[in-house]
Simulated scan of single mutants.
Amino acid sequence: MKSVQKKVLVTGADGFIGSHLTEKLVEKGYNVRAFVLYNSFNSWGWLDYTQAGIKKEIEIFAGDIRDPHGVKKAMEGCELVFHLAALIAIPYSYHSPDTYVDTNIKGTLNILQAARELGVEKLVHTSTSEVYGTARFVPITEDHPLQGQSPYAASKIGADQMALSFHRSFNLPVSIIRPFNTYGPRQSARAIIPTIITQIASGQRRLKLGSLHPTRDFNYVKDTVAGFIAVAESSLSIGEVINIGSNYEISIGDTVQLIAEVMGTQVEVETDAERLRPENSEVERLWADNARAKQLLNWQPLYSGREGLKRGLTETALWFTNPENLRHYKADRYNI
């Protein structure tokens, strides 16, 4: 699938990954319609801060993924759809699980129904490594059992299965991208890496964090965005679930020390009970097998291994320590 003037819809374009993806699609020559969450402030999320030259090329559609009429209207005339809109904060899913069903499952159903009725060429649906739960074997392949260890994870499993069912039942051209823990500029402080960086950048040297022993496979946002585009442009991805990860495992505790090294400081960690997941809900280990992405998409991470992670963390810390960016964050509060 070539990118020249192809009309695409990006849901969740106002968010962390969505804004980076939207910008990259414009740079590559796509004709982009950005679906952002309607709000009375007329905010486009992170797209408000994109370069003027890119911003003027983006068509904005403000709506709500939970509204089937609005979703179909947004999709009209689009050949390719990237579906990223979702509620993703795990702690908030303990608090308000009903909203996760409405947004993540019903919202995805709205996307699928519209895509089927309008005959889109391809739909790229966004999954998450959280659907695997704690690894039963590593590295985790796409055939690993699915385990809903949080309401968030359960809602994403439901959304993924709905997407696959539309491919199998109606031959809808669906591909599922399953990114592992993406990090980078603009990420919400509900995630561990921005939590660490913003506390250090705000002058704190005794950090308040949750569990340090779980491991994660961190994937820099540039690699994740490249994965989205590779999935969209490959005909081999239709009907497939594809991991996008670095194939490098590191504990949260070691990540703290690596960030401190990158930022030229020393820190101590204080366990904050409020930040701990319920015991059986904590995902203890994530480590991606990315062989399928390499085979089907010819994709591979540019920020892999310890040195790749360190390079990505350096770029991320540089962005967060800019006062103009840091002011968007409340480092003295726990963000759910």
Rank of each mutant, 00 (worst) to 15 (best):
I60E: 03
V225P: 00
T141R: 14
R275P: 00
H83Q: 10
S246N: 11
T321V: 09
V32F: 10
W46Y: 14
A115T: 05
K7R: 15
N290Y: 15
Y49W: 14
R277I: 10
V4I: 11
T224N: 11
L297H: 08
L25F: 11
L80Q: 07
I88V: 14
I105K: 04
L326G: 04
R136L: 15
L87D: 07
N39F: 00
I244P: 08
M263T: 00
S188L: 04
Q161L: 15
F16A: 05
A288G: 12
V81A: 07
S202L: 11
E130R: 03
K56D: 14
T265G: 01
I197Y: 04
Q266H: 11
G184W: 03
R285F: 14
A163D: 07
E117C: 02
K208M: 09
H144W: 09
Y94R: 04
D160C: 11
G264W: 11
P179W: 12
N247C: 10
G12K: 12
Q266R: 11
R190F: 13
S175E: 06
Y92L: 12
F180Q: 03
V4F: 13
E307A: 15
Y94K: 07
Y94T: 00
F218N: 08
T126A: 12
H69P: 00
P173M: 13
I176A: 13
A317W: 12
P185W: 12
V131F: 07
K208I: 01
D64H: 02
A114I: 05
G203T: 04
Q5I: 02
P185I: 11
K330C: 08
E233W: 07
V36Y: 00
T316K: 08
L112T: 04
N39K: 00
A114H: 02
E282H: 04
H95S: 07
A317N: 10
I157W: 01
R311Y: 02
S246P: 12
S235R: 10
I259L: 08
H328A: 12
Y329D: 04
E270D: 09
R206W: 01
S155R: 01
L164W: 09
P194L: 02
K294N: 15
K72I: 11
N219K: 03
N247I: 01
E240H: 03
R66H: 02
K28A: 11
K294A: 15
S169P: 01
S237R: 06
G210R: 06
Q5K: 11
Y303I: 08
A135K: 04
D102P: 00
